[in-house]
Design a protein around this nucleic acid. Structure first.
Lengths: 143, 143
DNA sequence: TTTACTGCAAAACATTTGCAATGAG
DNA sequence: CTCATTGCAAATGTTTTGCAGTAAA
């Protein structure tokens, strides 16, 4: 955690109470929080924090690479602390559950493909949707 | 094209002038249009069409599966007619160009992985960003 | 004729920005 | 001290909704 704080400082930006708090909230949560959820949790610690500050902190943390933003089917962003191993997301269209999965082969294949075309890849998002095992039980398997 | 119109009808919805127009616009364009671009083009044919109708038509066409929505890094949707072969998108962070690419191995691998976990996949979005060949020329290759 | 669909204007969200006050370095 | 950062409120941009009128079936 402390090394993350240091990363903020060494990016030339100031390590403020608010930025620390946003990062801590993401660090403590294994879910994919949206800006409003982060704002709510932040307010319970620091009631004076503003939503704009949450957005600005998230933008900074993304810029530094400590945080990633994902679009999980809804039209607002979800945020999570950057994980050591890249992973991807599956959203159940019925229950809304988000399942994470690793897919090294997929990542590998996509990178190679792009590099062959002269593209320099800096970010990759794989998002699937459908029905999780609980939700598609009892449904026909056709389609 | 006519069979698409039929698909709207057979979904139990009405085949209106406006829905036809939105579908035609997407059919005629190889780009990834956003709602506003579609609205502009639609107005040039039918000046009375409303933006809300464009959104409602897009939602219907998505529901039927004739149209797909993608998030290409910006915070609004881009739409394209569903293609026969699934494909994916790369956005250049510098020039904004969107490059499409096919990746059967990637799709295959991701599907298999999910099915092994009991997930029924209905949709898949792979989005990469980085720098296209024109834009990363002259830059250092180290990250 | 019926009622799903449209256009409009207003509402609902999501996110960003201007600015005076504040606090990190 | 200094100026990057904050909180607030207002602006922006995207998408949705309520409703009376219109048109597809």
């Amino acid at each position: 955690m402390d090394e993350y704080m240091e990363q903020i400082r060494s990016s030339g930006r100031r390590l403020t109470r608010q930025r620390k708090l946003v990062l801590e909230i993401l660090n403590d949560s294994q879910e994919h929080l949206d800006a409003d959820m982060i704002y709510d949790r932040a307010k319970s610690v620091d009631p004076n924090i503003g939503l704009a500050t949450v957005y600005r902190s998230l933008a900074l943390l993304k810029e530094i690479g400590l945080v990633q933003e994902h679009r999980l089917g809804e039209n607002h962003g979800h945020f999570e602390k950057t994980q050591p191993t890249p992973h991807h997301h599956f959203t159940c269209l019925k229950c809304g559950r988000v399942i994470e999965f690793e897919a090294p082969q997929v990542i590998e294949a996509a990178y190679k493909l792009c590099e062959n075309e002269g593209l320099q890849v800096t970010e990759m998002h794989l998002h699937l949707s459908g029905y999780c095992s609980q939700c598609h039980e009892g449904k026909l398997n056709c389609e």
